[in-house]
Structure formats: C-alpha cells, structure tokens
Write a protein that binds this DNA or RNA. Structure first.
Lengths: 147, 147
DNA sequence: ATCCTATATGCGAATAACTTGCAAGTACTT
DNA sequence: AAGTACTTGCAAGTTATTCGCATATAGGAT
C-alpha cells in the first residue's frame, strides 16, 4: 500500500514478464491483501467496471497462474478461486466454512512423502505433480447462529 | 447388469426415498458401472436426449447427493463430477492425469486423525465435517506421447 | 520527450454449465 | 383401476468463462 510496496509490486510484475498496467497492479494488490483465496465473483465486484473489464480479469488471472504468481484453489465448484503465492510459505491448505465461506489456513502437509507414496501405489502413472487438500466444516459463528 | 442387479438397484433407490424411474435407474447404473468419478458432460452425452433431459439430470444428481448415493468429486473446475458411493469402501481419493483425465483410485488416508488435527489448529472453527484430497499427475501413456 | 510496437484492454457476442417455472406424465399407494 | 404426489420435459433464464477484433498504452528505442 505504501509507495515502496507499490514499486516492488510493479517490479515483481515486470520480473514475471508482464507490463505493469493499472489493472494488473490493482488485481495483484487485491490478491496480496486478501492473504488467502478470493473467488472470481468477489474480484469482479471490486474491480469491474472501471479498473478492469471482466474478460481482462479472466485473461489476467490465467496469465498470473501460468507465471506462478497465483494458484487456483478448488474450494467452490461454482466458480474459480485464486490466492496470491507468498513465497515465504508456499505450500499449505485451507479449512473452509461451508456456511459463510470463512477460510483458515492450515499448515502444510508432508508433500514430498505424500506424493511419493501415492505414485508408488499407482502403476499406470509416470509422475505426480500436484495435489489439492481442502477441509470443510463449520466456523464458531455459524455454529452459534444455527443453534 | 443382470436382472438381480437391476432389481436390487431399484430397491436401493426406493430405500433412499426415490421413485425408481427409468432415468434414475439409467443414471445410477451408469455411475455404478464407472467405478469412479464421471463428469456431467460425460453423463449428459450418454443419457441426453432420450433417457433424460439435461435439467432432470442435474436435479437428479443433486437429490442423489443429498441422499448420499453419490458424492461430488472436485477434480475439474470447469464442471462437476460425481461418483457412486460403494458402501464397501467409502473413503478414498484419486490420482488424475492432467492430460487425458485417466483416474486411479488411491487408498484412504487416515481421515479421523487428519480432520482432528486440523480442527485442533483452527481456533475459529467448531467442526470439520469433510475434506477433499486429489492428486494430479501424468499417466504413462501421456508421458510416452509427449516424449 | 517522442515514437514504435508488442502487449493489453474494452466491448460485444458467443459458449457452457447449471437453474427455474410450469404444465404434463407416471410410479406407486389404495 | 384411480388418485396423488413425485418426476420429467421443455423453454427460458442465470452465471461463469471465453473469443474476436479494433483500439489503447507500457516501456524500450530514438
């Protein structure tokens, strides 16, 4: 948010091979500030119209994903969600409240061991390259509300 | 497929509170024979038109899910996939080829321990009710083809 | 500072998945 | 055999996502 932050973000986009346009900066900033997954409807609500066209939003998300600036998080079948990849702690998972959508970050699993074990038990596969692990439950507020 | 099978399937649907209509029988049979997740486009291709209308397909899948006859499997963000719940071995996961969609079933994880551990580390949550764990990789055929 | 050009964007239209309302059909009870 | 509640088909609608193309602009070159 501060000037130094904006500048480094601009540089980060350039380093990833992009032009630092206002729309991209706004989207990147939005995702960074979220510190967790955001659904496309939420992003659209905050950036369209004015900053971004809807088609551009989707195009940009796709390029961000290819550049490994964001990762898609499968927490809702109805629409895609993405989260900014903070290089300090890459691998982790989520616990999602099935009523209000509240998300809590879960510490990383033992990725290496897990994928290796899976590959060992899958005779028709040559490699395991990624996995998704998401938990669903009820948060305290929603539990209280339904009681 | 044999008569005994069809009869018991009909009874299974009735036991779940449904009328055993031709469409439902066909969908249930299709899912059972698949022994794994099927995407809605695939189901539509095999059942629509004639046996089933598209709207009815989606409605039926939703009721099957509520009745716990099938479970939704999040392996493709673009459309929903479902698999028949074979009560012999309920809990398990999948390894999906990201090129051809081949699916291999993965032995169950330690669900109880896993969800308990997650809940313990999530102060804002009251309960963990489910989780999804899917692996993605490259199958031997696709590896060979791209080489 | 200005120019150039590849890259990005906006707009409109097109898909694709999924949903809804309602009138008509039928499985199953009596 | 008849009645009713549950199901379905059809048509139209909604929402997420994509595509083509003409215009705009970021950032390097001059």
């Amino acid at each position: 948010m501060a000037k130094t932050r904006t500048l480094s973000l601009k540089e980060e986009l350039r380093a990833a091979g992009f032009r630092a346009t206002p729309g991209r900066l706004a989207l990147a900033q939005l995702l960074m500030d979220a510190h967790g997954p955001l659904g496309t409807p939420t992003m659209a609500e905050k950036l369209v119209p004015g900053i971004f066209d809807l088609a551009t939003l989707y195009r940009t998300l796709k390029s961000f994903e290819e550049a490994k600036l964001v990762r898609m998080v499968p927490i809702d079948q109805r629409f895609a969600s993405y989260e900014w990849i903070e290089d300090e702690h890459g691998h982790h998972h989520h616990l999602v409240c099935q009523f209000c959508g509240l998300i809590e970050e879960i510490p990383p699993c033992d990725l290496e061991t897990l994928e290796k074990k899976v590959l060992a038990g899958a005779p028709r596969f040559a490699s395991v390259t990624s996995h998704s692990l998401e938990f669903f439950g009820t948060c305290l507020k929603c539990r209280k509300r339904s009681k």
